[in-house]
Design a protein around this nucleic acid. Structure first.
Length: 572
RNA sequence: CGGGGUGUAGCGCAGUUGGUAGCGCGCGUGGUUUGGGACCAUGAGGUCGGGAGUUCGAGCCUCUCCACCCCGACCA
């Protein structure tokens, strides 16, 4: 490829309106062009990276027996009514009508389509296990796209689905894909990633893992034990609570005036937040009547993912106007509001000497003893883990890090095969619903994640395995007839063996060299009148800035070595 | 959906008390340059996000709609 013909421009000024390093470089280096909020076109270099990532994924999926298929983006409503998700998934799924007034939707995931594909196609247990996968465009009408390709509405996803005749066998297969995912992320050059236990969310099922790239720009919080294996998404993370103990005194109402927030009450009463009981109110989505109140210790926060599971429905923080609650003074004693479910977090269990609202303006109650004043209460874990809480496995202090979800795997069980009536014949002649698992990787997100992790202050730094080109061929002084002639010759010979971007522009050295660094091509080959005097070329390794002078006659051989060396490292 | 911010040339930005728009980069042409974003000359490129209003006159004031960015809610 000649850079003079390459579609897209390299920008000197950094793009405005983004604070994510990799996204900034991807825009500046001519990889992406935004179409609208959360929707991008990929320019040639990005598409080359995209295809390479896809091919690595494809190879690894094939290795675990995956069969590539391609399912439709547009699907009829009926399929999704069967599984129940036509109604349970919110506005992120785009629904529309075709010209015959038939309800259709854009697929955001393909469990339904896969079951439809396999039902009556697979008839006997004998054909299990098997896995189908596809690499396909997904559309999700995200509430808030952000950080370039990290969270977008339209993206390319590899999604795989496996089917099994028993749980043991499903778990074994799940482990194989888990290992496969580790290989994929390693091969595309990702370094600091981990697998964590995760919430099953809208997918359903029991066990799920997310693969997370640890980075400060990540959207998820991950709880990690520095001493043992425990790693979990904040949504499902648990910890052993270390209970504070306070003097057990009698109940007493105290005047607190305008003090409403935990901070205000604490500073007024000269106590710490962990001596207070905080009330958080939720509405149930799609249910105007009922309210949920969660009482949690003042230093803790409600984990809404956990709350959803307890309630069994979507919840949203509730506006307290026109309810019976006294905002800022809600207390757990004598709270009598109709149609209200009250939930106590386990952080409050057995505590005494606590402070809570009195359910009337201007007053809080001190000396609450949960055992004495509220006997017969069930405490449930509905709070978020705090940094420094105690690991549920080994007892060490937990840390919290940020991460980008780069892949996820779920053991779905029979949720879809049951609801969509997929059966196979078992050895004894009976029919059963096969067990199912699903496995996803966002290709564009993987691209952006590697870009984010490997970029330096000069620009992108692609790992060899997914670089748009292996070599940036950069002759200086293209006005010099001798340079130009030799450059054309070298380019032709490089093209036979390597993937090359040829900077054939007659512009100053500075522009060429900075562009090569911005674009992140792993190896740069420079020739110039100076180097040609000695019949030499200069090789620069992008990631280390290491420079190697090499005789022109040895150039191809040297490049071959450098490339295979890095590829071996990436492939393990 | 809530809070905050920004919309002026391809990109980055300036534009004073209201008087019909500039700068840098980039792009075209001619010339001089050439190992870390050269220089001279010259040229093209704008419905100042859209609409309505106030005014003799609006990039600037008022109203309204829209788009994008950031924080939250939401999220495979």
């Amino acid at each position: 490829m000649r850079i003079s013909k390459l579609v897209g421009e390299r920008l000197k000024d950094s793009a405005s309106g983004t604070n994510v390093k990799s996204h900034n470089f991807l825009l500046r280096a001519g990889y992406l062009k935004q179409v609208c909020n959360g929707i991008y076109s990929l320019l040639p270099p990005a598409q080359l990276v995209n295809l390479k990532i896809q091919n690595i994924i494809r190879e690894e999926m094939n290795k675990v027996g995956g069969q590539e298929v391609l399912m439709p983006v547009v699907m009829p409503k009926e399929m999704w009514e069967k599984s129940g998700r036509y109604y349970s998934i919110g506005e992120e799924m785009v629904r529309f009508k075709d010209r015959n007034d038939h309800d259709m939707l854009l697929g955001m995931t393909h469990e339904e389509a896969t079951v439809q594909l396999c039902t009556n196609t697979i008839k006997s247990y004998d054909q299990l296990p098997f896995m189908v996968y596809q690499i396909q465009t997904k559309f999700r009408d995200e509430a808030r796209p952000r950080a370039g390709l990290i969270r977008v509405k339209e993206f390319t996803m590899k999604d795989a689905y496996s089917f099994h005749y028993d749980k043991e066998e499903m778990k074994k297969y799940y482990q194989r894909v888990y290992d496969s995912y580790n290989r994929i992320f390693k091969r595309i050059g990702m370094k600091n990633f981990i697998a964590v236990k995760s919430d099953t969310g809208m997918m359903g099922g029991e066990i799920a893992h997310e693969f997370m790239l640890l980075t400060d720009i990540g959207e998820d919080s991950i709880v990690i034990c520095p001493h043992c294996d425990y790693k979990a998404n904040m949504e499902v993370a648990t910890s052993i609570d270390t209970k504070p103990s306070f003097e057990d005194i009698d109940l007493k109402e105290v005047f607190t005036g305008d003090a409403k927030t935990i901070e205000e009450v604490c500073s007024l009463l000269n106590i710490k937040p962990n001596q207070t009981i905080k009330a958080v109110c939720y509405a149930i989505v799609g249910d105007d009547k009922n309210t949920v109140v969660v009482f949690v210790r003042g230093d803790k926060e409600v984990n809404e993912a956990k709350l959803k599971k307890i309630v069994g429905k979507e919840v949203a923080t509730k506006d307290l106007t026109e309810t019976g609650f006294v905002k800022g003074n809600i207390g757990c004693l004598n709270l009598n509001i109709p149609n209200t479910r009250i939930i106590f977090d386990s952080s409050l269990k057995d505590l005494c000497g606590m402070v809570t609202g009195t359910n009337k303006e201007g007053y809080h109650t001190i000396g609450v003893n949960l055992k004495r004043d509220l006997p017969n209460i069930d405490f449930v874990d509905v709070s978020k883990v705090n940094e420094g809480d105690v690991c549920p496995i080994c007892g060490a202090k937990l840390t919290i890090k940020r991460g980008i979800e780069i892949g996820n795997i779920f053991q779905l069980g029979t949720k879809y095969t049951k609801s969509m009536e997929m059966t196979v014949t078992m050895p004894d002649g009976s029919l059963m619903n096969p067990l199912m698992s699903c496995y996803g990787i966002g290709v564009g997100r993987a691209l952006a994640s590697v870009a984010e992790e490997s970029a330096d202050d000069k620009g992108l730094v692609w790992p060899m395995s997914i670089a748009p080109w292996q070599i940036y061929f950069c002759p200086l002084r293209m006005d010099d007839e001798n340079v130009k002639e030799i450059a054309e010759e070298i380019y032709k010979s490089l093209l036979k063996k390597f993937e090359v971007i040829y900077d054939d522009r007659n512009v100053s050295a500075g522009i060429k060299l900075t562009d090569s660094e911005l674009m992140g091509v792993p190896i740069r080959v420079v020739i110039s009148p100076r180097s040609l005097q000695n019949k030499q070329a200069e090789i620069t390794i992008r990631k280390s800035s290491e420079k190697i002078m090499v005789e022109l006659k040895d150039l191809n051989e040297k490049l071959k070595d450098l490339i295979s060396q890095e590829m071996e490292e990436l492939n393990g």
